[in-house]
Deep mutational scan, measured.
Amino acid sequence: TKKDTKLYCICKTPYDESKFYIGCDRCQNWYHGRCVGILQSEAELIDEYVCPQCQST
Rank of each mutant, 00 (worst) to 15 (best):
A43R: 11
C24S: 00
Q53A: 12
T1G: 09
T5M: 14
I46N: 10
I22D: 01
C51E: 02
K3S: 14
T5V: 05
C54P: 03
C24Q: 00
V36N: 04
V50M: 08
P14C: 05
Q40T: 09
V50S: 08
F20N: 12
F20W: 11
K3Q: 12
I46M: 12
F20C: 05
I46C: 04
D25M: 12
D25P: 07
K12W: 03
I46V: 11
D25E: 15
P14E: 08
D47M: 09
D4I: 08
E48C: 13
Q28A: 09
F20D: 11
Q55C: 11
C35K: 01
S56P: 14
C9V: 00
E17P: 08
C9R: 01
D16I: 03
S18L: 03
W30N: 08
Q55F: 04
E48S: 14
Q28E: 11
Q53V: 10
I22F: 03
C54H: 03
E44T: 08
Q55T: 07
D47L: 11
A43P: 08
Y21K: 07
L45R: 14
L7M: 10
T13K: 12
A43D: 04
I38T: 09
A43C: 14
D25L: 13
K6F: 06
N29W: 05
P52A: 11
P14W: 04
G33K: 06
V50W: 08
S41M: 09
T5W: 06
D4F: 06
D25C: 09
H32T: 00
C35E: 01
D47R: 12
S41D: 11
S56I: 07
K6E: 12
R26G: 14
C54G: 02
Y49R: 04
T57R: 10
T5I: 13
S41R: 14
T1N: 14
C35D: 00
C51A: 02
Y49Q: 03
P52S: 15
L7D: 14
L7E: 14
Y15G: 03
W30V: 15
G23F: 09
K19S: 07
I46F: 08
Q55P: 10
R26E: 10
E42A: 10
Y49N: 04
I10G: 04
Q40A: 11
Y8L: 12
Y49S: 04
F20L: 07
C27S: 01
K3D: 10
E42I: 05
F20M: 09
C35W: 00
K6C: 08
S18E: 15
P52Y: 05
T1P: 06
W30H: 13
E17V: 05
C54Q: 02
I10Q: 04
C27I: 00
R26C: 14
Q40C: 09
K12E: 12
S18Q: 03
C11E: 03
V36E: 03
H32G: 01
T57E: 13
T13M: 08
C51P: 00
E42H: 05
S18K: 06
E48P: 15
H32Y: 00
S41Y: 09
V50A: 06
C9K: 02
E17K: 13
E48Y: 09
C9P: 02
P52G: 13
K12P: 01
C24N: 00
E42Y: 05
C24G: 01
G37H: 08
K6M: 13
P52E: 14
V50Q: 07
F20Y: 11
R34C: 04
C11T: 01
Q55S: 14
E42T: 05
T1C: 14
V36A: 03
A43E: 06
C11P: 02
G37L: 04
E44N: 10
Q55M: 07
Y21H: 07
E17T: 07
L45M: 07
T5A: 07
K12N: 06
V36R: 02
Y49W: 12
T5P: 11
D4M: 10
I46Q: 11
T1V: 08
S18T: 07
Y21E: 06
T57Q: 04
C51Y: 00
K3I: 12
Y49D: 02
Y21A: 14
Q28P: 07
R26Y: 10
A43F: 08
I10T: 06
K6D: 11
Y31R: 02
H32Q: 01
E48H: 11
Q53M: 09
Q28F: 07
C11M: 01
G33N: 05
Q28I: 05
L7Y: 13
A43N: 06
K3T: 14
Y31M: 04
Q28H: 14
G37M: 05
K19N: 15
Y21T: 05
S56N: 15
K12A: 05
R26P: 07
Y15K: 09
D16G: 03
Y8I: 08
H32A: 01
G37I: 01
G37A: 06
L39D: 11
D4C: 05
Q53W: 06
S18M: 05
S41T: 15
G37Q: 07
C11Y: 00
Y49H: 03
A43W: 07
Q53P: 12
L7T: 13
C51I: 00
E42N: 06
S41A: 09
T13A: 05
I38E: 04
Y8Q: 15
D4T: 09
Y21Q: 05
S18N: 07
I38Y: 11
G33Y: 14
D16T: 05
C54R: 01
T1D: 11
I46E: 06
V36C: 03
L45T: 12
K12R: 11
T13Q: 09
T13P: 02
C54E: 02
I38C: 03
K3H: 04
G37C: 04
I22P: 01
H32V: 02
Y31I: 04
E17F: 12
T57C: 13
T1W: 08
G37N: 08
K19V: 10
V36H: 02
N29T: 07
C9Y: 00
C27T: 01
Q40N: 05
S18I: 00
V50K: 10
D47I: 06
K6A: 15
S18R: 06
E44Y: 05
F20A: 08
P14Q: 06
